[in-house]
Design a binder for these strands. Structure first.
Lengths: 338, 338
DNA sequence: AATTAGCACTCGGATAGATCGAGTGCTAAC
DNA sequence: GTTAGCACTCGATCTATCCGAGTGCTAATT
């Protein structure tokens, strides 16, 4: 039930506000070449849009600013994805020119690219450790009592744990243990490791290994997986340059939110497929009421792997960010899959 | 040649300024119970101290503030190390209660403890990767063409590299290669790996392995070590709460410095033994002219491993930080060594 | 000779008006 | 339906003023 002219004006106003960060008045809209009606007409239209809840004023006689409802409408109906210039596409590709020897590095670089090109903050969630499956397990002895237990997963992720083994243990025993583990635990999801260890392995172990109890304790401990998420964050400071965050208190509270774990939960609460936008209070997390969150996902060979997120002010360059996050997540998927 | 009274007043003034962050006037000093002379006398003394360069005024009729020379003198001659309360020692120990399965985690937690207890920013430098020696090397095949190369060092650090191998390669070949590498490269410093590979290994390899060239290329690439330093930083945001950084521009520039690599070089330029303090412009790095840097080192079984640093405003609680950084680095060394 | 009381002076910070300009809503004319 | 005109609002900026915490200097006191 918005007239074409109202749609047009709403779009103009959001676009204008996004770059200027100042409330937009009727005069400044009327000045544009593509607007052929007077400030007074515009005032009337804007008053209507305000009445419908799409716009707000910061004070009685100020210009207008989009409300959250306004942004939502804009994002849902007026957002025309922007094309990246060839230069920019080239620059992005350039960031991926080098060979990546670790998957983590690839993800980290993606976060960097995204934060640099959007000028907002990028957060990448890696695959959940718990969902991976064990591919191979290995023990390296460092000295008489210490060693490193290495766990390689099907996705090529490597976890390592410092272990202290009982003095009584012999080198052959260690080898035996590792063989048993590799034999019995291949392709078991990490979250099941401990359970399997207790159920299926303890029997075999008891037969072959001296000092059974101590060894089991040691393994028990080493196979505890904590770190539930891998997080790569880049461009935290970008947000500080935004005019809406010139207040030191806001800066502190926002930075603290970005450091914390809650932001990860917020991101994980986004639908797990496709591109999604949460504007201001649509986010459930306190502290980012004035921010918008855009997420999409990336994968590796068809398998969903993790989430890409950009967080910036509500007054965000939505078209550009949408295009960028989409492009970058595709490049990442491509790179991971090949 | 400062009189006792001047020493006393300088100490009082620094202590006062450190907690209040306000220029200190003669009246407020005279009010103290342990001061038995009048504001006028104090003014005379402070004027002398100022003339000698230990104090400064922010404007003509303001109270006094320590100059860098003043801080330096304070740190060198007046610093009385503070004792931690039993509660605090308990709290610190408490942070280390859990078992650490990775050395990195232990260092990370130490950074956290230090930043929390000092309320400044803690930066820990891990051991230089390049100085470590190879303990064991291992390849895990993920699928037909991809695998993970795992490098374990003598310090128990684990590096992993994604590799793509030529299709022609056979499982036995991989095993042979790894055996050769382990045989020839044990205890070789990481920075020599590539050179050794070319010199000593290529001959053996040529004899035993088909598709020699491709394999060598693959290994060549995998044994390139980049990441020269491990950095753990905690409490970046603590500094923001300090009254001297209430200016958004300062915040941004300081945070950018803390993100950057230069701060690592600055820390590495500190003497490699004992506890050291650099005040304000004594730091060569632009952007931390208003900060002080305190560093010491930690080790593992007698072997120097890395550096602990705290960065805060020049107006820093030196006695407390010195005690804390010392305590914490000892605990870390203890934990690593045992 | 060292200390201190007294006093004029300085300067930053807070407070209160005055002014300006960009904006609005409303009414009446086009 | 559109627009010109006008009274009105409110934040931002500037200015003047005042206050208080501080100083340095001089002269009196110990």
């Amino acid at each position: 039930m918005l007239t074409d002219r109202q749609l047009f004006l709403l779009q103009l106003l959001v676009n204008d506000y996004v770059v200027s960060a100042e409330p937009v008045g009727s005069r400044s809209i009327a000045k544009r070449d593509d607007v052929h009606f007077s400030p007074a007409t515009i005032r009337n239209e804007l008053a209507d849009l305000e009445e419908m809840g799409f716009l707000e004023k910061t004070h009685l006689s100020s210009g207008r600013v989009p409300s959250e409802k306004g942004y939502r409408f804009y994002v849902d109906h007026l957002l025309s994805p922007v094309l990246l210039s060839e230069d920019e596409v080239g620059n992005i590709r350039h960031a991926y020119r080098k060979k990546f020897s670790e998957k983590e590095e690839l993800i980290r670089v993606t976060a960097q690219v995204l934060s640099e090109f959007t000028n907002y903050t990028a957060i990448m969630l890696g695959p959940e450790l718990m969902d991976m499956r064990l591919k191979h397990i290995q023990m390296v002895k460092l000295n008489q009592t210490q060693g490193v237990l290495i766990i390689v997963t099907d996705t090529g992720h490597v976890e390592n744990k410092m272990v202290t083994f009982p003095k009584s243990i012999r080198a052959e025993d260690i080898e035996k243990i590792i063989n048993i583990l590799n034999d019995k635990l291949e392709n078991v999801p990490l979250y099941q490791l401990q359970a399997r260890l207790n159920k299926e392995i303890s029997n075999v172990m008891r037969l072959h290994i001296r000092d059974y109890n101590r060894v089991m304790n040691m393994l028990q401990e080493s196979l505890t997986m904590d770190d539930p998420e891998q997080i790569f964050c880049s461009g935290k400071n970008n947000i500080l340059a935004q005019p809406e965050f010139q207040d030191v208190k806001k800066i502190i509270s926002l930075l603290n939110v970005l450091e914390g774990k809650e932001i990860v939960h917020e991101i994980m609460s986004m639908p797990a497929t496709g591109l999604h936008i949460r504007i201001g209070r649509e986010n459930k997390l306190n502290g980012i009421e004035d921010c918008s969150l855009i997420t999409t996902t990336y994968s590796m060979g068809g398998e969903h792997l993790g989430t890409v997120a950009v967080i910036g002010p509500k007054r965000m360059a939505y078209p550009r960010v949408v295009t960028l996050i989409d492009t970058v997540s595709k490049i990442l998927t491509e790179n991971l899959t090949k």
